[in-house]
């Protein structure tokens, strides 16, 4: 790869992590973001699983799109086809991991099925097509998006562990204060807007 291509890859990764963070800027994958971020350890496990799935899903959906959907002029079937691809892929990976790398299966195990139909994973697949990335760029973008998701989860789990100990007005307890906190974290991420041009 030439220096230019490497720089482009770095910009894609950093952009996906900071500028266009899937959770905090694009608001995709909010369900696991709020559901699994209660503790640092679970958010790490979920983050690891998301990085893993997003990376391979980006590559797989790109191949399906290029050699199947585009060839037969069926681009409008992207959503259906991608969900099918991602779900089977995750299921397949889970089966293989269980047999081949049991420790990794134990670490990611319960989180893998949770992400099969996650909108962030589907989102990264669809965005790859919209942005007209090639195979390498798609994979890198998927990886970056996964890292961004993990970063958001880890940051937010820290915030939530702090909230647990705070004296919160009765009407805001639970989900309301969590959403407000999520909004504030999201606002802080807008500071990265225009970092890579």
């Amino acid at each position: 790869m030439t220096g230019n291509a490497v720089r482009e890859m770095i910009v894609i990764i950093m952009g996906a992590i900071l500028v266009e963070n899937f959770v905090l800027t694009k608001f995709l994958g909010i369900c696991p973001f709020l559901g699994v971020s209660k503790k640092l350890s679970t958010s790490l496990g979920m983050g690891g699983a998301v990085i893993f799935v997003m990376t391979i899903a980006s590559a797989a959906t790109w191949v399906v799109n290029k050699f199947l959907l585009v060839r037969f002029g069926l681009e409008y079937l992207q959503t259906v086809a991608f969900i099918l691809v991602i779900a089977s892929l995750v299921q397949f990976v889970e089966t293989v991991l269980k047999k081949v790398i049991p420790p990794l299966y134990k670490a990611l195990g319960i989180y893998l099925p949770l992400i099969t139909t996650n909108c962030a994973v589907l989102g990264v697949a669809l965005l790859n097509i919209q942005l007209e990335y090639n195979l390498a760029k798609s994979t890198v973008y998927g990886f970056g998006a996964g890292v961004g998701f993990t970063l958001a989860m880890i940051l937010f789990s820290g915030v939530r562990e702090r909230i647990e100990l705070c004296d919160i007005p009765e009407s805001l307890k639970g989900l309301p204060i969590t959403l407000i906190a999520a909004a504030l974290v999201s606002v802080s991420f807008f500071g990265f807007q225009g970092l890579f041009q």
Binding site: V64, L68, F72, L74, L77, V80, A81, L84, S88, T95
Partner: peptide, 18 residues
């Protein structure tokens, strides 16, 4: 027929694979 064949085919291939 084409979309049905493609999506159905994908489904069958994945199903058998799994």
């Amino acid at each position: 027929i084409m979309p049905a064949a493609v999506v159905g085919g994908l489904g069958i291939i994945f199903g058998v694979g799994l």
